[in-house]
Nucleic acid binder design. Structure first.
Length: 872
RNA sequence: GCCCGGGUGGCGGAAUCGGUAGACGCUACGGACUUAAAAUCCGUUGGCCGCAAGGCCGUGCCGGUUCAAGUCCGGCCCCGGGCACCA
């Protein structure tokens, strides 16, 4: 590089980015066109909820998608990267309540602001396919498919439990229940049973579970979480016949049905327990005021499983008994708050000796413990917990001495003989309740007629359009007060009728939006042929928080559409990347009432106090604030970073580089102002290296045969970096290490001595490759630098480069030598050296000799090309 | 409570299939340039011992397998995600 002082052009991100974005827009670079002759690549990021402004999590998510998309494009694929809006949901209703603005207006304002932000980040999105789930053109197909499922019996009605706020007279979301109280009213929340529509996802439980094995492009942990969520377990359904009192109360002969995976412990059952909602509990409570009060108490609080499972175990006897199906013993039936009505039969047989929860309950209420599995403890000794592992049966009469499987088989056979039990499979998965007592969602296409009952809306009357000018006030669904929506004609008898006011769960919207991108302009059908070209999604990217619900519903919905012959695929997403959350520091003060006031980290500075200890100080008043550690960026903790400020101050490329470099995509990412500086500095260094190089005039053509020794070594580093970056971006998706490899290479180039024309040719090649390798990550600056390097076309049309294999060949290798597993030296050997030769060189090393000393060499392990371990 | 992840220098992280722990970046410190500052460039930076060569210790904790463990196995601790109406 010449040492003459001269002024190189300054890196001005705003100008560079505006120019690149203008070029892409003018050339419609990202408009995807179906072309059966070309291999397609459908790269999809989870669509955002239009909450107001982009947050760093969005920037991270969409940068990952854009890097993969641009890389695939360079590999020659026909890439589709669409974008849309998950536009229905609760926050719009909350904003409406807070600001008195209609959810629709609020949502569309947010969409136009966020669309502009996405464009300023330079994502290669095909905006011609944009959709929003709150458009009738979209949600009419939610309604249409709902009707098809209704016809097939895959949608049905039953009651479901919701959180009821008795003051506001409204149903609350789990999020709106805080410590068992309504978030606005503070009233104690009650559980309430209301009629709802359900989708029969359990009909697909076996298939959804079985197909997980084939999802090789999914992270193992997501597959595991889904498998556990579906929760297939094999067990025995056992009938415990009612005693006379229970029979009388139930009004007929009957038996308490329970499901258990531990039929081998049946001889140890000492009581049965039912959920508070169980019919037997209801029957018992009729004549027992104390029990009635307890059952009512169990109906207080939220419906959340986490709350139920962590609640203190409590119960009361029903006074009824059931008959043990094998021993004939009378067992008491209890109502217990740890039994879930939603799983199995809502009743359990309790074996305190071999189940943790039963044990805790039995200990509290002095119920008998009867060990029937040989464990680590002798029967008769004091136990402090249950022995829940499998083992050999004891104290079980004719079933003694059996291993788990044999015991279950023998007991199941004996029960079957008496007609009191059979083996069956139980899933943890429950059917999907889709009814919401909310305004801002897809209207359920049902009409209620006094004469005809529940009548589906005919297809030709779709969509049932949601009025857009409602402003919810927190006291229930405003649709109930809208005669223009409510009043209609019955499709069956044409008499006066009333529309259903419940809307659909927003997970319905997101269960198939990825199909609609392929044909968003089709207003006569839900999907068309273009879906079979683009689907399945080749790469799906989104937050790990969606690992179960959204992804499982989408898998279910896709299968439903397959069974309706609407699509040919069964799995919607071939490869899945689950990105980690974005975190930032949390700072707060407590006010007089003990409430926490949060301060944005941007308003806080780290200083040292008089004693030299670090202390966080609010810039506004110079007084300290408390540190609350680190946590996900959220409005409630006021620790978000507005990506717009970053884009405005440093440019989109710096924002993109920072999020890609700071952490691998699947891990949490911690925000750091200094890290942003580092990213920006690196881009300036790339800019400078390219401009300094071209300032010395054009380089001559590269002749690999005419290189100096240092030129060969430098060129080897260049192509090694290319091999690594190709693998990191294309296979491993570890963008952080890809960037590190390019940084390392740039450091080498800056140190290199460029004296001869052949050196300059190597430099030209190296800089071109650096710009090509970085172009998926920081596309704007690379768009510019590609032209600076003397190329007339656009870098976006360039192919991903291939390494020159001959440049990678090295003559020697460095081998690490260990003695007893500790590194004691390094030797340089010819690259092709045989093991014996490497071994000899290793043993000859001075420091190695020092540690071997006079001891006998017991073993020498040679790992070819890497290391030698001498064991003495 | 249940299911799934994670824990490595002052900090973010690297180590891809059991084979050199700390790549790359940040911070801090020292130097160059500058009237000065910023920016930029160069150097040092896990701890301890040593003039040096080099050595000892070190990947949340305890134990195990192996020639070799951040990586595998068993038991714990802490942090994060999900738990079906936030999306």
């Amino acid at each position: 590089m010449s040492e003459t002082t001269r002024s190189l052009p300054e890196y001005d991100p705003q100008a560079v980015e505006a120019a690149a974005q203008r070029w892409w827009s003018e050339h419609k670079s990202f408009q995807a066109v179906e072309d059966p002759a070309r291999e397609k690549f459908y790269c999809l990021s989870m669509f955002p909820y239009p909450s107001g402004r982009l947050h760093m999590g969005h920037v991270r998510n969409y940068t990952i998608g854009d890097v993969i998309s641009r890389h695939q494009r360079m590999l020659g694929r026909n890439v589709l990267q669409p974008m849309g809006w998950d536009a229905f949901g609760l926050p719009a209703e909350n904003a409406a309540m807070a600001k008195g603005v209609a959810p629709s207006a609020w949502t569309w304002d947010n969409i136009s602001y966020m669309r502009r932000q996405l464009k300023s980040l330079g994502f290669g999105i095909d905006w011609s396919r944009e959709l929003a789930t709150c458009q009738p053109e979209y949600y009419r197909w939610n309604q249409w498919l709902f009707l098809r499922l209704l016809e097939k019996g895959l949608v049905y009605q039953k009651t479901g439990t919701v959180n009821w706020d008795p003051l506001d007279q409204t149903v609350l979301a789990n999020e709106q229940v805080i410590n068992g109280r309504g978030w606005r009213t503070g009233a104690l929340i009650e559980k309430r049973e209301i009629p709802m529509y359900y989708m029969r996802i359990t009909a697909y439980a076996d298939e959804l579970l079985g197909a997980l094995d084939g999802l090789e492009g999914w992270p193992e942990r997501v597959r595991l979480m889904q498998a556990n969520w579906i929760g297939r377990s094999e067990g025995v359904e056992i009938a415990f016949p009612y005693d006379a009192a229970a029979t009388a109360a139930a009004g007929r002969d009957g038996a308490l049905l329970v499901f258990t995976t531990r039929a081998d412990t049946l001889m140890g059952a000492t009581y049965c327990a039912v959920a508070a909602e169980h019919p037997l509990a209801t029957a018992a409570a009729r004549d027992d005021a104390g029990l009635a009060a307890f059952v009512e108490e169990c109906k207080q609080g939220s419906v959340m499983e986490a709350d139920l499972a962590t609640a203190e175990k409590r119960g009361m006897p029903t006074g009824f008994h059931v008959i043990h199906p094998l021993t004939g013993d009378r067992l008491p039936v209890w109502v217990a708050n740890y039994v879930l009505m939603g799983y199995g039969e809502g009743a359990v047989m309790a074996v305190p000796a071999h189940d943790e929860r039963d044990f805790e309950f039995a200990a509290k209420y002095a119920l008998p413990v009867r060990p029937v599995i040989a464990g680590t403890r002798e029967p008769g000794t004091t136990w402090d917990d249950a022995f829940a592992e499998h083992g050999v049966t004891i104290n079980s009469g004719p079933f003694d001495g059996l291993e788990f499987d044999a015991a279950v088989d023998a007991i199941a056979a004996s029960l079957a003989e008496k007609g009191l039990g059979k083996k069956r499979v139980q899933f943890r998965l429950r059917d999907w309740g889709i009814s919401r007592q909310r305004y801002w969602g897809t209207p359920i296409p049902i009409v209620h007629c006094a004469d005809c009952g529940v009548v589906p809306v005919p297809d030709e009357q779709l969509p049932v359009v949601l009025p857009e000018d409602c402003v919810p006030d927190g006291s229930g669904n405003p649709l109930r007060h809208r005669p223009d929506f409510l009043d209609c004609r019955c499709p069956a008898c044409n008499g006066p009728a009333r529309r259903e006011t419940d809307t659909m769960d927003t997970f319905v919207d997101s269960s198939w939006y990825f199909l609609r991108y392929a044909c968003a302009d089709n207003h006569t059908a839900m999907v068309d042929d273009r879906v079979s070209y683009w689907l399945p999604v080749d790469q799906y990217i989104g937050g790990i928080e969606h690992a179960i619900l959204h992804l499982l519903y989408s898998r279910f919905w896709t299968r439903v559409m397959r069974d309706l012959d609407l699509v040919q695929i069964k799995e919607p997403f071939t490869h899945l990347l689950t990105q980690g959350m974005v975190l930032n520091d949390i700072y707060f003060r407590k006010d007089e009432t003990g409430r926490l006031i949060y301060f944005n980290p941007a308003e806080v500075e780290q200083q040292a106090d008089a004693a030299g200890h670090p202390v966080a100080v609010l810039l506004a008043d110079g007084s300290p604030v408390e540190s609350g550690g680190i946590g996900t960026m959220s409005k409630s903790r006021n620790n978000g970073v507005d990506p717009q400020l970053l884009v405005d101050s440093h440019g989109a490329d710096t924002a993109r580089l920072f999020t890609m470099f700071t952490a691998p995509p699947e891990q949490t990412l911690e925000w750091s102002d200094e890290g942003v500086q580092g990213a920006s500095r690196f881009l300036k260094r790339v800019w400078k290296a390219v401009h300094a190089h071209v300032a010395d005039g054009p380089a001559s053509k590269l002749d690999p045969a005419a290189l100096t020794k240092s030129g060969i070594a430098l060129r080897r580093q260049v192509h090694q970096a290319l091999v690594k970056v190709t693998d990191d971006i294309g296979r491993r998706r570890t963008f952080n290490t890809a960037i590190a490899a390019v940084m390392e290479l740039l450091n080498s180039l800056n140190r290199a001595d460029v004296a001869t024309p052949s050196d300059r040719a190597v430099m030209q090649e190296a800089l071109e490759l650096i710009v090509l390798m970085l172009s998926p990550i920081v596309p704007h600056i690379c768009h510019h630098l590609w032209n600076v390097l003397g190329h007339p076309g656009a870098i976006i049309d360039q192919a991903w480069p291939s390494p020159d294999r001959s440049a990678l060949v090295a003559e020697t290798r460095e081998i690490v030598v260990q003695v007893n597993g500790k590194v004691r030296g390094r030797v340089v050997v010819p690259a092709e050296a045989a093991d014996a030769e490497v071994r000899a060189a290793a043993l000859a090393d001075n420091n190695v000799q020092r540690f071997v000393g006079g001891q006998t060499v017991r073993k020498v392990i040679v790992v070819p090309g890497k290391l030698v371990n001498v064991v003495v």
